[in-house]
């Protein structure tokens, strides 16, 4: 009988809980979803156990022309979701990068306070915080009132139920997810490296490009992935701030499962969303890593 080394046994013991948990609660459902996406929808919900590829046909361009119809709108929604998620990621990055620098230079007490403030929104429900945004963004809301009082606008901007409102809401929700990984890599930068770069003749922008950005890249990557993936599939923010006008892929999946009761098609849309996430994220990582062959 083959005997295992002490180290191997330890490894198995240490990894067992995570493996079991993920196996049961993550891989399992994912497989069920993958299988369901190839099944025929039942007439009153549920599924018929027949192989059925028209679900994918509806989205990607083939249809039987009888029960299932090809419609470009699904791909449009997928593309719009990806676009909004991308915009959210970029804008969160823009918001968090300077803030991370500013906070990393504070005193220990200031840092602790700011980190606490960043995580403070988690203390209340996301739904309540999004309602607060409705109060701010609606036509009679604070934003329009202030702009009106300042004489900058003569009629309401119509911010609510638009892509703008959705992106604002998502930036608000996802700032901590970008900030924390970014901050941990920004804080690790040795100030002497920035001085060394200046000393060797690099202007501030060059120092940023050649030293600061490469050294904080792990944080930028982690933050972007943590923001991009959940914002692509998010359905709470678009359904509250986007209304019926801004449907994102998450809302579509929700509708298929809960209202249309077409589980196979919902599963198909989810699978397509996962695949597009994987494609975009791996393309991003590939691009970023290629420019940084080191480390």
């Amino acid at each position: 009988m083959k005997s295992f080394s002490r180290q191997q046994k330890q490894l198995v013991l240490l990894l067992a809980p995570a493996t079991l948990f993920l196996g049961i609660f993550f891989i399992g459902p994912l497989l069920i979803m993958a299988v369901y996406s190839f099944l025929e929808p039942g007439l009153y919900g549920g599924v018929e156990w027949n192989f059925y590829h028209w679900n994918y046909g509806r989205v990607l361009g083939w249809a039987d022309g009888f029960y299932e119809e090809f419609d470009l709108v699904y791909l449009e929604i997928l593309a719009r979701s990806a676009g909004l998620a991308l915009a959210t990621t970029l804008l969160t990055l823009l918001v968090c990068y300077p803030a991370a620098f500013w906070i990393s230079r504070m005193s220990t007490r200031g840092k602790a306070l700011c980190l606490f403030l960043i995580t403070l929104p988690f203390f209340s429900s996301m739904i309540i915080r999004l309602y607060a945004w409705i109060l701010i963004l609606r036509d009679s809301g604070f934003a329009n009132q202030i702009l009106d009082a300042l004489g900058l606008i003569s009629e309401p901007l119509g911010l609510m139920y638009s892509s703008t409102a959705v992106v604002i809401g998502m930036i608000y929700i996802f700032v901590p997810f970008m900030f924390l990984p970014l901050y941990s890599s920004v804080e690790k930068i040795d100030g002497k490296l920035i001085q060394a770069s200046q000393d060797l003749g690099a202007a501030p922008l060059t120092t940023f490009r050649k030293v600061i950005l490469p050294l904080t890249l792990p944080g930028v990557i982690a933050g972007s992935v943590l923001v991009f993936i959940p914002s692509l599939g998010n359905f709470v923010v678009p359904s509250m701030l986007g209304g019926a006008k801004v449907v994102m892929i998450g809302n579509l999946v929700e509708q298929q499962f809960l209202y249309a009761r077409n589980w196979p098609f919902g599963a198909t849309l989810s699978m397509l969303m996962i695949v597009s996430m994987l494609v975009i994220v791996s393309f991003y990582l590939f691009k970023v890593m290629k420019n940084q062959p080191q480390s």
């Binding site: 490296l193 060394a196 200046q198 060797l200 003749g201 690099a202 501030p204 490469p214 050294l215 940084q292």
Partner: peptide, 27 residues
């Protein structure tokens, strides 16, 4: 600082960890 004709050797060396030695010296 970046326009001064002086260069510094730092106590902690401050070598760029993401660059190899050649790129550090050639910076």
């Amino acid at each position: 600082a970046h326009k001064r004709p002086v260069n510094t050797v730092f106590q902690s060396y401050a070598l760029f960890p993401h660059l190899n030695i050649g790129d550090n010296v050639g910076y």
